[in-house]
Structures are given as C-alpha cells and as structure tokens.
Design a protein around this nucleic acid. Sequence first.
DNA 1: CCGCGCATCGGCCGAAAGGACGAGTCCGGC
DNA 2: GCCGGACTCGTCCTTTCGGCCGATGCGCGG
Lengths: 207, 207
Amino acid sequence: MIDVALADDHPVVRAGLRSVLESHEDIRVVAEASTAEDMLAWTGAHRADVVLLDLRFGPGRMSGAQATRLLAERGGPAVLVVTTYGSDADILAAVEAGATGYLLKDAPTDELVRAVRAAAAGQVTLGPAVQERLLGRVRTPQLALTSRELDVLRLVAAGRSNDEIARELFVSRATVKTHLAHLYDKLGVTSRTRAVAVARDRGVLPV
Amino acid sequence: MIDVALADDHPVVRAGLRSVLESHEDIRVVAEASTAEDMLAWTGAHRADVVLLDLRFGPGRMSGAQATRLLAERGGPAVLVVTTYGSDADILAAVEAGATGYLLKDAPTDELVRAVRAAAAGQVTLGPAVQERLLGRVRTPQLALTSRELDVLRLVAAGRSNDEIARELFVSRATVKTHLAHLYDKLGVTSRTRAVAVARDRGVLPV
DNA sequence: CCGCGCATCGGCCGAAAGGACGAGTCCGGC
DNA sequence: GCCGGACTCGTCCTTTCGGCCGATGCGCGG
C-alpha cells in the first residue's frame, strides 16, 4: 500500500488528485495540505511514501521547490512535483532540490498513477511534456547567465533605466551597460525590450 | 436534480470537479470534455443545466470565452467559468460573452457548489476574488487603450523597435511615436520597457 | 604561475527613443 | 453642422541607449 500526502493550494485539484489516486487499490491518500508549510509540519509528525507537491502556493508562501529541499535534507518521503507550468527554470530548480518526479497538471490520470508508483519505488519519473522540454533545452545549448546579469535583466524587465539600475545595484552606469552588452550577446538581441521578450520566451524570467 | 457538464483540459481538475460536485445529492455530472469544441458538440445533442467551462484550452484550441458566446447565442445552458487566472480582460470577456458566473480554481469547494446551484437557478455568481478584482478595476478608473495603441503595445512587448513597428503596421515612425506617447501618458510612464512592465502588471498584456 | 571568466569602471560616437510642438483626415454623436 | 476623439504624419531638440574601444582587480583551475 502506498501512502500519499497531497499539497496544493487549489481545493479542486486536491479533490481531483485524491479521486484519481484512491480509485486504485494500492494507493491511499493519508493527508491533504493547502500550503507547503502545512505539509512540512505534517510530514514531521507522520509518515508517507510519496508527497505530491505543487510548486507555487499563494504569494508570500513557501515555494514547492523550497519545501522539496527541506524534505530531502531531512531524508523525508519521495517528492513528486505536480504543477501547472513547467518552465525550464522551475523544473531544474525542483529536480535540483531533490524532487523524485515532475509532472504537469494536464497529464492524463494513468500517467499520474504510474508516476506515484514509480516515486514510491524510488524511481525518477519525468512526464513526457517535461522530458520534451528538457530535451529542447539540451538542443538549445543554453544560455548561462551570471547572477549579476540576471540582476540586471530582472530590473530591465521591471522597466528600470540603466541609471536606475546602476543606483539600485550600487554600481556605475558603465557596469550596467557592460552586463547588458553581455546579455545582448547571449540572448542574440540588440535592445532591452527584445532582451526581455526573448528571456521570457526562454523561461529565463518568471512569467 | 442539477445536470452539470464539465469542460477542462486537465484530467485531474475534471476529476476534482466531479468529485466535489457529486458528493452533493442534488448535483449530477452528466458529461466531461477536454476541449471547448467537444463541449459544444455534446451540448448540441444533449442537455445540461450548467456547463462548467475553463477559459484556456490548449494552444490552437477554441477559448472558453468563444465557446460561451456560441452557447449563449444558441440559448444553451448556463455557463459557469472556472479558470485559474482571472485577469481583468479575461473576466470581462467571459461576462460579456454571456457567462452566468466566474470562479477561480482556487475557490473553496463550498463556493463552487453554491455557484453551480446559483447558475442552475439562473443567478449570476462571481467569486469573491473576482468581485474584488472588479472592484479594484472600478477604483483604478481603468485605462481605455485604443485598438491601435494595443497593437503598438503588443509589438513593443515583443521587443520590436519603433521602426519595425511602423513597418509591421504600415504606418510611419511618427505615428508609432504618437501612439507611444499616448500610451506613456495613459500608463504613467516614460519608457517603453516600463510601459510593458506596467501593462503586464495591470493585466493589459497577456502574461 | 598564468590564464580566463566575472565584475567593475571610463570615454567616445552614432543611433534610437522620448518630448514638444503643429496639423490634416475621418467618423460618430449631440 | 459642429465637436471631439482616433489615427495619421511631420519637424526640432534632448536624453538615453547600444557599440566599441580600453582598463583594473579578483578568484579559480590547469
């Protein structure tokens, strides 16, 4: 028997996951939580074989990736991330944090069940859509932006001018321009708005 | 007895809605569809009291708003829109198309059930979160962008230069600049990147 | 140790964008 | 019929941005 705990901020999704999983004899839903914090608290006091975790909870709440990291550190149950959006950054963050699997919410139900069983057995499962995405990333060798470049890029996306960015990062205008030049080079663009558009497209920036 | 038909591209969400609704004696789920097109076809041959409809289906598929319009035109069942994101534009489009209600997917289950019963009775129901959003829109008087300004704004967000925009819209650079000046005025900004950021923030641009 | 990537800064120059005018057309409403 | 708003176009000017040069310091790995 596989004991599963659910954490998702959407009541309807929780009901759906429960409904799908409990229609199978070998799976039992033993807990539901609407936040990552609640799930952490619960797993501290109880046991489960698999935790189904959403990535994004409400604003100001702990992210699923962070919860995954904490669960993994304390040697907790296998974590199967089930989320709506799968940007490259999300997937990588979750896997890096120690997720045992990654599914999109639009996955068919049998795929979900298979992933739960695999996770319980300690096997890694990435949904087909996720795999394809990761493959795409391999094909497109991938821009490795430095942290400073990301700082600048985020502020550019927020609509700041080079001057404002310089002030906010406590550097000179020239430095900002240098980072921007590198960004343009890596993104293959020649203007800030284009850079933001491409970065969004590639999942570099949170949508 | 209220007969409900579900249309959502997420199998898990469909299961969740079914599970939540069928736990009530007076509600019966009589159909499930994974696309708006399927739902339209089904309602053409069968009857339902209420249709629960997602707004966004896969890329290239008919939108929930469009389906709502078609259902309303043929005098079909009440349409209750249940979707994840509720940007102002989405809500208005759905209501304008003839939706009987609008709920966010993170709504608690009892709210969902109440909305279904209300919709069956022909009453309009907007979820609390939706109401708040609409109120916010009233408080923030609301920028009324002209269609041409929206054209320009979208291209700016895509990273085009004024020159490119001029060519794509078959107008002169000066015209683009004029539209931009009006946009800046309405959005309260002084640069294109800022305009895009603010527009995204206000839900004017699709995220 | 020496190179290489990263971050930091500066100057110069041309191109793009933004601000501030004016001005013509067309359409719908009072 | 007149007025207002939307859309179109132009000119002149200032600011910002992007491209292109160079330079320094720092840490890390061959």
